[in-house]
Amino acid sequence: MKNWMLGVAFACVLPACVTINIYFPAAAAEKAADKIIDDVWQLKNGTEKPSVNVGEPAAK
């Protein structure tokens, strides 16, 4: 009776013994991407000012 259950359990677990699949952490990757993009594009540093003028002195 329980044979088929055991079979299923084996089928699930045995492949895991051979290869450990670590699936791509999509949510974490998205979070990491957002953080890097915010840094590179200098978003969220105070107001979202366009960074075109960064490094240029104001006209006098």
């Binding site: 677990v13 895991a16 450990i20 670590i22 699936y23 952490p25 974490a28 990757a29 979070k31 990491a32």
Partner: peptide
């Protein structure tokens, strides 16, 4: 035994 591997995958990059 293999459960911890899945937990690692959910952590931050």
């Amino acid at each position: 035994l293999f459960l911890p591997q899945l937990v690692i995958a959910a952590a931050d990059l």
